[in-house]
Design a protein around this nucleic acid. Structure first.
Lengths: 252, 252
DNA sequence: AGATTGCTTTGCTCTGGATCAAGTTACTTT
DNA sequence: AAAGTAACTTGATCCAGAGCAAAGCAATCT
């Protein structure tokens, strides 16, 4: 019964230069000719479905992936199966950069909702980047950004409490949606409470309780996967640990 | 009274090709000629002293640094001064990769003990790397390694308990010392208990207590900064959460 | 030598979140 | 529609590790 009748992406001949993600994943300063060269090595595949693996830890590293639509989660499965979620990847975000060093995928990547990805053979990308300085530059920037982002996460896990972590998480999503032209205050979560907790180093129950509490305090509205951020300012205060946090006591 | 009479490194004309760190920081597959080119852009400075800043968060990013001798700690000072230690860098390790993206240093770097560093102007390195494919490749690998390492830290902070974290930390140092030709089981800590705790997301007191407990259990000997790992095997068990942990109960 | 300062250790108490244990609600499948 | 299953919520309890306070020790200064 694969009569899914999904929109086939095969016939969509949108080159990189026309891709709506250009400003997110492509180097600024590439000439149209350069973009065509890059475009030529990018493979566009049929959409993947929830639960599919983009790759698994231990797989040979061949390609860098860029999310076009949908969401992908990356995680370290752990010897004993005690999965650690490493990230949730939205359209325009790259996946697989941690595999360059060893040539073996260091984490696994799983589709959270119907997703289309671009696939870029790394060897070709690398060759191309040595002939196009601005592409090389962009690659360095992307890798560097990833490092910076991971460092932010280290601070989150090392220093922030549960409230601050969830607030940060929601604000991060909010900002990323906004940059993609979606509402920063009204969106759907494509990951489960369990996955959020895992990502933030919290138990599912804690995440659930915090959602309830944030809602009771008028910071947001949640219903299942649907979130509406009502008071972003106060969420930002919580994020930076601005004392008082939720349950703002009336300061006399 | 700058009559420090420190060993001047100015007259040490050790080129990269002769540097003992070659296998750690230089690309495999660079021809001797390539190494000379790289060598030409590397600046070698006089040693820095405990407490000196290599750079501060917010500084303009100009150079990548490589530790030659000594130890450097990187950290995010945090708005409110609630420092988060991001890493301890031993000889052969690179610093500053997270600044490429924005051109502004994302974290600060401080010297923990008298340290010599090589300074590589990034713009020159970047240019050079586009003419030497194997150098470019090595740069990608180094950046990727950093990402992989940060991801490992995320798992450490997100999933491991205090014992597992300290064991991991000690084993990481042990391995890195070994690769540099030093004893893997007998070394000095150049960072304080406070800094270790901060790095591992633990309170100083917890770190101190764990050292005591590990010692009581015959895993290691500590005296101030001096550590001797006595039972590395058991430390590895603890690291991977191999149940029983310390206080191995007699299993009848 | 004695005093000052800054780590580090140790004991005691407290708490944020984990864990355990039921429910509850929403999808799927039949 | 009923039944099953997976995700989520909520309540109750517990505990690893934080925080506080007070020594203990080294290293430096006077």
């Amino acid at each position: 019964m694969s009569e899914h009748k999904v929109i086939s992406f095969d016939n969509i001949k949108v080159a990189c230069r026309n891709c709506s993600l250009t400003s997110l994943c492509l180097p600024m300063g590439l000439t149209p000719e350069d973009v065509d060269l890059l475009d030529a090595i990018v493979k566009r595949n049929r959409p993947l479905h929830r639960g599919d693996h983009l790759f698994r830890q231990g797989d040979k590293f061949q390609c860098i992936y860029v999310v076009k639509t949908g969401t992908v989660k990356t995680f370290d499965p752990g010897e004993d199966g005690s999965e650690q979620v490493l990230g949730f990847h939205l359209p325009g975000e790259m996946i697989g950069l941690d595999a360059i060093e060893t040539g073996i995928h260091h984490c696994s990547a799983k589709i959270l909702e119907t997703t289309a990805v671009c696939e870029i053979p790394f060897t070709l990308l690398e060759e191309l980047s040595s002939t196009i300085p601005s592409l090389q530059h962009q690659m360095y920037r992307l890798l560097s950004r990833e490092i910076g982002h991971d460092e932010d996460m280290l601070t989150l896990l090392g220093k922030r409490n549960a409230e601050e972590r969830l607030a940060s998480f929601l604000l991060s999503l909010s900002g990323r949606f906004q940059r993609r032209g979606f509402s920063p205050s009204d969106f759907y979560l494509s990951m489960s409470r369990h996955e959020i907790g895992n990502y933030l180093g919290l138990a599912v129950e804690t995440v659930s309780r915090l959602f309830t509490r944030f809602q009771d305090d008028g910071l947001l509205k949640v219903e299942r996967k649907h979130v509406q951020l009502v008071d972003i300012e106060r969420l930002k205060q919580i994020q930076r640990g601005d004392q008082a946090g939720v349950r703002e006591q009336q300061v006399t």
